[in-house]
Amino acid sequence: MNETVSFEDVLILAGCDIMAKSGNIKCPFCQKMSFKIYPDQRAKCHNKSCNWYGDSAQFYSDYKEISRLEAIRELSSKLDLKKSIIQTKEQTYNEAKKSLSEDYKFLSWCRIYFAFYGDKVVNQKVYADKCGLSKSEFSRIINGIMGSATTWRKVLNILRQEINIDRLKRDIKKGSQYFIDDIPPEYIKKYRIKNKKK
C-alpha cells in the first residue's frame, strides 16, 4: 500500500502536524522533530528512543491501535479516491484535466477566502508553514502556478482540510451586514465629516 498512498495524506487524515523543519516533521509517537518521510512513502523516526519505521498503512495501524487490515480498509473508505490521494492507476489525460479543473475552482475560492477575511481570521503564512513552504511558494500555488505536482497535491489536500468554503459562502451572503460590527469608530467619524464647500 505504501506505493499508492501519500504518507502526508494519511498524517493529515490522522490529525497530525505535518509542518516540516529541516526536512523532518514532528513524530506522532514521540513528539520529537525527527520523523522523516522518504520518496518510497516509508517513514522513519530518527529519535533512538522511538525509532518507528514503516509505511502509511503501518503508521495508521500503530497510531489508531488497530490491525493493519482494519487500517487499510479505513484508509480506503476515508480517503477520496477521486482526488488522487489513492491512485490504483495513472490518470488519463482527460481525467487529469478534469481533476485539475476542480483544483483551479477550489483555488479560486481560496483566493476569495483570503481576500474576504484578510488577517482577521486567516494568515497565509500560517498555511504556508503548514505546507512547509515559503510564503512566496505558497502564493504561487494559490495563484494557480504549478511547480512540483507532489507539492501541488500536498497544498491542495491541506487547504481542503483547513478552509471552510461553505462558511465563506454564508458570510458573503450576509453582504455589508457582515462587516458592520468590525468597522473602527475612528473610520466612521472620518467618513461622517463632509468636505466644506468653499
Rank of each mutant, 00 (worst) to 15 (best):
E65V: 11
Q41P: 00
D80W: 01
E90M: 10
S84I: 10
N47D: 10
S136K: 13
V126W: 14
D182Q: 02
R160E: 00
E186C: 07
L13I: 02
C45T: 01
E70L: 08
K48F: 13
V10M: 01
G54H: 03
S148Y: 12
R170M: 11
E186S: 15
E137Q: 15
Q124G: 14
K135G: 11
N195D: 11
K196C: 11
C27R: 07
I25L: 12
I85S: 10
D181V: 10
C50G: 04
E186M: 12
W109A: 13
E70N: 12
K190C: 09
M146D: 08
D119Q: 14
I193S: 15
C50I: 03
D9L: 02
Y178R: 08
D166W: 05
K82G: 15
D103Q: 04
S148L: 06
N24W: 11
R153K: 15
R111D: 05
A149T: 00
K83V: 07
R140V: 01
T88V: 08
Q124E: 06
L133W: 00
K64Q: 05
L11S: 01
P185H: 10
S61A: 14
I72V: 14
S101F: 13
L156R: 04
N195S: 12
W109K: 14
A115S: 15
K130H: 09
D17H: 04
I163V: 10
K82N: 08
V122T: 12
K105N: 11
Y127Q: 14
Q87M: 11
N2P: 02
D80S: 12
V121Q: 13
G54P: 02
S139H: 13
R167D: 01
T150Q: 14
I25P: 05
I142Y: 02
M1C: 03
F114S: 09
K64L: 06
N157V: 00
N47W: 06
